[in-house]
Structure formats: C-alpha cells, structure tokens
Design a binder for these strands. Sequence first.
DNA 1: GTCTATACACCGATAGAC
DNA 2: GTCTATCGGTGTATAGAC
Lengths: 198, 198
Amino acid sequence: MARIPASERRAALVQAALRVVSQRGIAHATTRAIVAEAGMSLASFHYAFDSRDELIDELITTVVASEQEAVLPSDLQGLGLRETLEAGLLRYFDHLRADPEHEQAMLELTQYALRSPERHPLAVAQYARYSELAGRSLEAAAELAGAVWTTPVAQVAGVLIAFTDGLTLTWLVTRDDDVARAIAHAAADALSRMAEPR
Amino acid sequence: MARIPASERRAALVQAALRVVSQRGIAHATTRAIVAEAGMSLASFHYAFDSRDELIDELITTVVASEQEAVLPSDLQGLGLRETLEAGLLRYFDHLRADPEHEQAMLELTQYALRSPERHPLAVAQYARYSELAGRSLEAAAELAGAVWTTPVAQVAGVLIAFTDGLTLTWLVTRDDDVARAIAHAAADALSRMAEPR
DNA sequence: GTCTATACACCGATAGAC
DNA sequence: GTCTATCGGTGTATAGAC
C-alpha cells in the first residue's frame, strides 16, 4: 500500500465508517468492517487512530459539522409564512426519501452518544448545531414571507427540530408518505402561528 | 436455584433485559449482563430461550403490548380541544421526565429492529400499536371537548405520534423543559385544527 | 509506514456433572 | 432443571517482520 498522510487516512476511515453505519447500523460498525470498507489493513486503522472510540467521536464531530442548512428555494417569494415553511419541510422530506440511511445513521449516532457520559456532549453539540441551522432557516423564511417571529427564534428552532425528528422517525418505520406530508403540513401550521406579519 | 417454570423464567429474563437496555443501552444488553441482572446462570438463559435473538424479539413484543393508552384525565371536561390535547401531551411529558430511560430504550429497540430484515416487522407492529393507542386517545379527547375530527383519525394519529417522538428525542438530548412545553403547545395547536366543533 | 500474525477479552451457545 | 466449565467465534488492539 502507498504511503498516505495520517490526516487523509483518518478522513478516509471516517467516511468508510459513515458508509458502514448508514448501510448496516452502528452495531455492525466494527473496526474490521470499517477497514474492509476503506480497503485498508487493520493495522493501518490503529496507526491512524488510537482506538475505535476515537474514530466514532471523530465521525460524529465530522458528520455534524458537515450538516448543511436546508436552503430555502428562492422561488418561494410572495408566499405566506405557512406555505414557505411547509415547502421547506417538504424539501427536507424529499431529502429524507433520497437518502434515508443517512438520517437513520444520524439518529443511531445520537442514541449511541447519549449512552456514554464521555460522548454525551457530542449529542448535545449535534443538537446545538441543528438549532443553529434551524434558526437561520427560520429567519430566512420569515424574511421571505414578510413576517417576524413573536417567540424567541431559538425556541421556535427547538420546535422545528422536534417536528423534523418526529417526521424522520415515523417515516423511517412506516414509510407512509401521506402521513409524512400531513406532519409537514401540521408542523408548518403550528410554526407559522409563532410569528406575525411585519 | 429453585425450579421455576420456563414461562416465569422467560418473563423474568425479559424484564431483566428491559432493565439492562434502559440503564445501559441495547449494545450492552448481552446474555451475560441480562442473566446477571436476573440473578440466573448463563445456562438457565439457554434453557428458557433458544437464542439471544429470540429474547430480544420477545422483549420488543412484550414491551409494545404493555404500552398503555395515555389516559386522559377526566377533569378536562369543559375545556376546548386544543387545551385538552395540550394537557394530554404535558401528561406524556411528565411521564417522560419520570422515566426517561424507558422511552430511550423504546427508541433504541425500534432502531435496532429496523436494522434487520427479520425484525423489521416488529418495528412496524410497534408503530401500529402506537397508532391504535393514539387514535383512541384522540377520539376520547374529541369526545371530551365536543369536537369531531375532519381528517381521518388514523392520519391525525400519525401526526400525534411524530410530534410525541420528536418531543421525546429532543428532550432526551437537550433536557430543555421550556422547549418541550413549547413543542407540546405547538403540537396541540396544529392537531386541534384537524377537527371542528360538533 | 504498512503489512501479517497474533494476543487477549468477551460474545453466544453447549457439554456434561449433579 | 440447574449448575460450572468450556467451545468456537469475533471483537479491539498490538508485536514484529519488512
């Protein structure tokens, strides 16, 4: 095998680990499965990382940092806030349907992190990041729709995250698109009542 | 050790397994951890169950069957539907705060079941049960508040489950009571708009 | 730095004494 | 029926040749 800088090797292993967790779940994300996915030897793993725990920590950190704001499409100009929010939620739903395994992996990583005291802060940081992204989307939506939030945006963001998580969890189990759309509709309805026209 | 009927032994092991999953997570619920919790020997385990998988299946089945309808308190008479629903959601939140580990265990078991094709139907059955319970609660709430659902109750139940799941997941991570109450408020608001006065 | 080979702990499951 | 002892397999991690 060629010589590869440790930083590249770490990144490759993290990406391989994400694929394994996405496809097979955290329980199957053993060091052996991860190095096989990355096409490396077991020893290379322990050259790049001290332990499996260290890799999982870096996986969570990396994957959380790379979460992107669900960009609100610009063709929403002129719609009311409720419609704008619903369009955003439906966009998220499309994203979920396109890559359900990724969202399932995120949920599993959160649950996993919650179970160990040392990793608990990673789960909290994950949700702080979600809150930041949700807050920005909410500000943008209000701007687009000519509204202003009457509840602190951080609180509205918490509600949006809960609704999104709930939509994700139930759809991953039931795969019921109609119910998912009803959730998006109801969520947008409730959220829009936390603002008023500007 | 005394002679114990196999059925009792199975039940005791299932309860021990639930305690282990609740306290330490599914990943730590090994046969050895479970028999230690139940105060049995390892061999007793395999006398009662053919395999660990069989126990986990029975654990999920049992725990789902024992889920109770969140009984609506009868002192809600005379309130509007929105208030009745919000009171019910806050009751659920109290339950969550009283025993967060149980709800965390339920989430983990669902995720775990989703990951294996043989167990996938158990997760689906779990949500079907939730839907049944939620539907009954919604019927009762509408009855109490003198309203009638204008959306099919099965669909409203799906939305309620999603909102409840979302509240659970976000509160388990953030432990933010204020946001949880805001979620309950927003959820009740959205759900109440799926009905009209009778 | 990268590999193969292996150490050592723990897993699920079973054998066989009582 | 219940136990102790142990098997075979797999997990993380490391030793040592190259």
